[in-house]
Computed example of a mutant assay.
Amino acid sequence: MEKGIAVKDITPGAEVRGVFAVTQAAQAQSRNGPYWRLTLADAGGSVEAKIWSPLSAEFTDIPTGALVLVEARAGTYRDQIQLTVEHLRLLDEAESAAVDPAELMPSSPFPLDDMLEELLELVREEFTHPGWRKLTQSVFKDDALRAAFRTCPAAKGVHHAYAGGLLEHTLSVFRLCRRFADQYAELDRQTLLAGALFHDFGKIREFSGGIANDYTDEGRLIGHLELCIEMLTPFLAKSGLEEGLQRHLRHLILSHHGTAEFGAVRLPQTAEALALHFADNMDAKMAQCRDLFAQIAEGSWTPYQATLNRALYKGPRTPDTPPAKSRPKSRHAPREELLSLL
């Protein structure tokens, strides 16, 4: 079945016809009657859509994860594109199977296998203390955990909210923390890097992944900080890692959000916890900037971003500045060889 128009190609005033995945669907009430508020997504991003009355009454249920054929008109609301749906039909099983999943699932712009190979090589290189080495290697030798970590998103919608986002974000935070450790001698390098490696590991169980990526029940009720501790506990018990280092790792995981307002169980109370928090926050903020700059159609200002409480200005680049480099392809050994070395 033909995909039709992609989200990234929708412009204000355009007539839209295409197949999208429903990632959010909720009924609400307006002065003119009940309506549906949807988020429609494909590999290029997502867009909000509304089904107004009386058309809204034709739908008793629009399940998240469903694929739908949509005809709509594109407008803008608060500087963001919004669709007014004129026709919507849920695809049946055969039609859904005929749609290429790669056209519907956003994924990291960087090759997942290359990123995983690089991270595995850094793990082998950095963790020389026997306890840290046994812990990190045993976790990544678990086939199920490694496969889930490779494809898991890092968020539902704020940053790295796509397949491979957790891997991309973790590798970036790990790289930043290596630089921090090079700069500041007061940091315990291996403890900080263990925190970087595992700080968001619980998101494997916090998010469902897939086309309709959403919070799991345990993700909503417990959250990825505590889930990470739960997941690591059996590996820590067998690692031989000193109790003080185990306790410090737990603190890094539970405090890396920085403040209780943003979900930290404890404030960062060690130099390593502060460094990890700032590395994590920096990478998340830069990912949001990158996504916002990609949305600029005209001028130099991005749409307003609620999570940042501002729009962003993309200033002129200094002449003769080389363009930002994309992530280089891995120079390391094949993943299978790295796993044999772990």
Rank of each mutant, 00 (worst) to 15 (best):
E261I: 14
T76L: 06
G131V: 12
R179A: 03
V99I: 15
G258I: 13
I10P: 01
N281S: 12
H257W: 04
V85W: 10
H248R: 12
G195V: 05
F278K: 14
E261L: 13
A161M: 05
P101N: 06
F59Q: 13
A311S: 14
F140M: 07
F235Q: 05
K134E: 02
T60C: 05
E121S: 11
M282F: 14
D79P: 04
L120P: 06
I296N: 08
V265W: 00
A237K: 15
N32F: 00
P109H: 10
S46D: 09
E117I: 15
P268V: 09
E121I: 09
L167P: 08
L276D: 04
Q82D: 06
Q295D: 15
H87G: 09
R335C: 03
F235W: 07
M1S: 12
A297K: 14
L245T: 11
P322I: 06
E226P: 00
A297R: 15
Y215H: 07
A275R: 09
S172K: 05
L341A: 15
L342I: 14
A97K: 14
D283T: 13
L193S: 03
M282W: 01
H199D: 06
D182N: 06
L308T: 10
D291K: 01
K238P: 03
A333P: 04
S30R: 09
E48G: 01
K156H: 10
R124W: 01
E226D: 13
L341H: 10
T233K: 14
A72E: 03
D283R: 00
N309V: 15
T191E: 08
V70I: 10
A294M: 02
T151V: 13
G131C: 13
R31E: 02
D9A: 12
T60K: 15
V123F: 01
T307S: 15
E58H: 10
Q269V: 03
V68D: 00
L236S: 02
Y215E: 11
T11V: 10
E121P: 00
L232H: 02
K203N: 13
A97T: 12
M231W: 00
E242G: 07
L267N: 07
E86C: 04
S108P: 01
L342G: 06
K141N: 11
L69M: 07
A212W: 04
L145N: 09
T302E: 01
P130Q: 00
G45R: 04
G258F: 15
M231F: 03
A57K: 14
A163N: 03
P316W: 04
A185K: 15
Q190K: 09
S56D: 02
S108M: 11
L236R: 13
C152A: 12
L193E: 08
K314D: 10
E226A: 07
G299S: 09
E168Q: 12
G18T: 12
E2N: 10
T39E: 10
L274Q: 01
A212I: 09
L69C: 05
F149K: 07
D214M: 04
Q246L: 08
A144C: 01
D79L: 08
L267T: 06
P234V: 15
R247L: 14
H256V: 08
L292Q: 07
F207E: 00
K50W: 00
A155I: 13
T39A: 11
R89D: 05
D217R: 14
N213T: 11
W301E: 15
L116P: 00
T307L: 08
G202A: 08
S46R: 11
